[in-house]
Design a protein around this nucleic acid. Sequence first.
DNA 1: GGCCTATCGATGCAATTTTATCGATAAAAC
DNA 2: GTTTTATCGATAAAATTGCATCGATAGGCC
Lengths: 218, 218
Amino acid sequence: MEPKILSAVSRSTLKRLPLYLHVLEDLHRRGVVYVSCTTIARKFDFGPILVRKDLEVTGAAGKAKIGFRVAGLIDDIKKFLGWHNVQDAFLVGAGNLGKALLGYQDFDSYGLNIVAVFDNDPRKIGTRIFNKEVLALDKLAPLVKRMHINIGIVAVSSEGAQAVVDALVAAGIRAVWNFAPAPLEIPEGVILENARLTQSLAVLTNKLKSLLAGPEKE
Amino acid sequence: MEPKILSAVSRSTLKRLPLYLHVLEDLHRRGVVYVSCTTIARKFDFGPILVRKDLEVTGAAGKAKIGFRVAGLIDDIKKFLGWHNVQDAFLVGAGNLGKALLGYQDFDSYGLNIVAVFDNDPRKIGTRIFNKEVLALDKLAPLVKRMHINIGIVAVSSEGAQAVVDALVAAGIRAVWNFAPAPLEIPEGVILENARLTQSLAVLTNKLKSLLAGPEKE
DNA sequence: GGCCTATCGATGCAATTTTATCGATAAAAC
DNA sequence: GTTTTATCGATAAAATTGCATCGATAGGCC
Ligand SMILES: NC(=O)c1ccc[n+]([C@@H]2O[C@H](COP(=O)([O-])OP(=O)(O)OC[C@H]3O[C@@H](n4cnc5c(N)ncnc54)[C@H](O)[C@@H]3O)[C@@H](O)[C@H]2O)c1
Ligand SMILES: NC(=O)c1ccc[n+]([C@@H]2O[C@H](COP(=O)([O-])OP(=O)(O)OC[C@H]3O[C@@H](n4cnc5c(N)ncnc54)[C@H](O)[C@@H]3O)[C@@H](O)[C@H]2O)c1
């Protein structure tokens, strides 16, 4: 079957695919060749039918009784997500979070490669973090064009975030991955995706509140 | 109206509440006293009705024509999320991400306060990060009990994550905020919430792939 | 003061998302 | 070789989520 092209693919499905990928790569490392949706679903709190429906969008095909070939499935998901070819990206903001992102080894297996860091703090410009030199913002636009960069990562404070996004867009960036909590504006035709940690935290603390308040009922 | 208690509150709603909070706190800083759902919704790509429905669960009440009192709404959301009282939390994993989390100033406004850090790397134990000493894992259980800690944050590598969660649960932790990509098992009655950056990245790269492949169609 | 307009809050409808059902198929068991 | 069982793939049902409508209300306007 062909993978879905112009994305009627739901966000929920898209967000579950990397979960499967992690499980699959673990199985692959352990030498497992075939896997069923039932086996994958056991790792999560939802059922095998949902897994099957999700995998459908990637174009992967399984066989009755034996399931999907692990290696093939990994390839299909990665291709569908665009992780089979690693994309170069620019990072803006060399603070605490920026450093962590720079030092993260695994991004390449998620199709991402941070090739340069920018900051507006003169004390940081010129220093090296994880063997990458921190560059001034006026280098951003020419380098985006010269290196044909599509992805910009925003890890600056909330106040600076909109200005940084505007600069990235003006420079020709096609997609922005934003870590600041502020809601940002972006023109048509450019992708904005927010990595909001606090959303996850909100779910946690709310559940915890209920748990601590009334563990007797359910 | 009373806030919803035993949570039939959807995850989607829960995840939008912190977004509103950020907008509201911005308005509050700028001296705005009343705000309507329409105004809030303008910052996002969904409508005022959804905002109103979301706010309903917090128990906040607005007035016709003028909307909600900003300060009151902030309080109501924070109370609903459990962010009005700051909870102490333990962090396990003093690596790149762990350092970033430790250095994050704003957690207290999200109801979280990291009070101690643990690691199993003997070279890290005893060092100080952001003025907090890195402790050995055998200190974990007694301190959880002594300090009545409810929240554990996992920022260790995937391989170590399950063992760390097990240790946290054994020590009496009630809720785990996990940053490792591995799917973890947790017993009934303990909350597990995964902060998965790669989910957000998956949405981004997939959209970008579609954008780069066919910008002609929509 | 009466009318107009923006907004809330409630109810009902539409779309999306998840779950269940069922026949087909391929491997395993007997 | 036949039966049994696990799984896929498709379709249909159920549940959830998001959206629209409508009356009520409070403030602004004439
Ligand atoms: N640290 C975390 O764990 C964490 C967690 C969730 C969200 N965030 C968010 O990520 C962002 C960064 O957090 P952080 O802890 O790294 O903050 P930080 O203060 O340590 O770093 C911010 C960096 O951005 C730079 N900067 C600020 N404005 C800039 C601009 N206009 N142009 C270029 N550079 C600019 C600063 O010089 C600094 O180096 C914040 O918006 C924060 O809310 C951080
Ligand atoms: N750095 C990032 O930007 C980033 C982004 C997304 C997810 N993550 C995830 O967060 C986790 C941590 O990432 P990182 O970049 O900080 O890695 P890291 O290697 O820098 O840090 C891991 C730390 O955990 C400690 N550790 C390992 N096993 C342990 C155990 N069993 N008990 C106690 N401590 C243990 C190590 O000593 C080390 O200090 C990983 O699972 C990673 O996949 C990181």
